[in-house]
Amino acid sequence: MTEWLNAIVQGVLLGGLYALFAAGLSLIFGVMRLVNIAHGDLIVLAAYMALTTVMVMGVHPLLALLVVIPLMSIVGYILQRLLLNQTLGNDILPPLLVTFGLSVILQNMLLEAYTADPQKLNGGAIETASVSAGNLSIGILPLLTFVIAVLVIVCLQWIFYNTALGRQFRAVSDNQDIAQLMGLNKGHVFGLALALSLAVCGIAGVLLGMRTSFDPSIGSGRLIFAFEAVIIGGLGSLWGTLAGGIVLGVAQTVGGKINPGWQLLAGHIVFLLVLAVRPRGFFPRVEH
């Protein structure tokens, strides 16, 4: 019994990481209807950025966030202004195929720079530390990841609904032409949206790298988890994304508990089941 409870708790905490993967994806879809196929590879890029920072500066991976987050934001802004803004329009093909191409380029760039050897961010004592609650032992790192995920979502929610930037995000999302008429440069606003999305990818990448080993090829897997969390949670809802991440995380740990080979499969199957019975997810945004 405790074993199963443990699997569920681990799954919930894992869901926090998946929510971090998903939040950035959900954000740019909300603002500019862009689905970024390279999203997972950008998370892996962030992990490698942290790896380099740790090696060069000799700091703890969590401190490397101070370098990774700004750097990822800059990458995001430049990427959007120079490349992705040119793909946005009524046709879904250009953004899809350009980000797909970007994904392949990123993967191979990382392969060239860091080889295919698995790497890991060494978090030190925090990786093995745990607190116990009853019969359960909860790892500090997964717990921290979950707390950070909740904080990130609170923060994104606040930006969206209480700041001038959030107002601009919602305005361009509603009607790009009219937003432009009001003096908003949509290219710039989109740039800021991807910058914010990649800032979250930065956090996700560092936490991923401390949790498990990574190599240049794992990006597409993270994209798929992010995507599943978004769809399970319901498009356009950040809290739904957290819920979606948790459902996916629990499905994976419980599936893995039944049979280690079923871990990923169980997550995908739960996703397909949700798609079959609740195609709009659990918390879809109400259409105006």
Binding site: R167, Q168, R170, S173, D174, A179, M182, L184, H288
Partner: peptide, 13 residues
Amino acid sequence: FPSLSVEENLKLG
């Protein structure tokens, strides 16, 4: 802008 309140619409202007 349907996602914005009256005041937010005005502020955006």
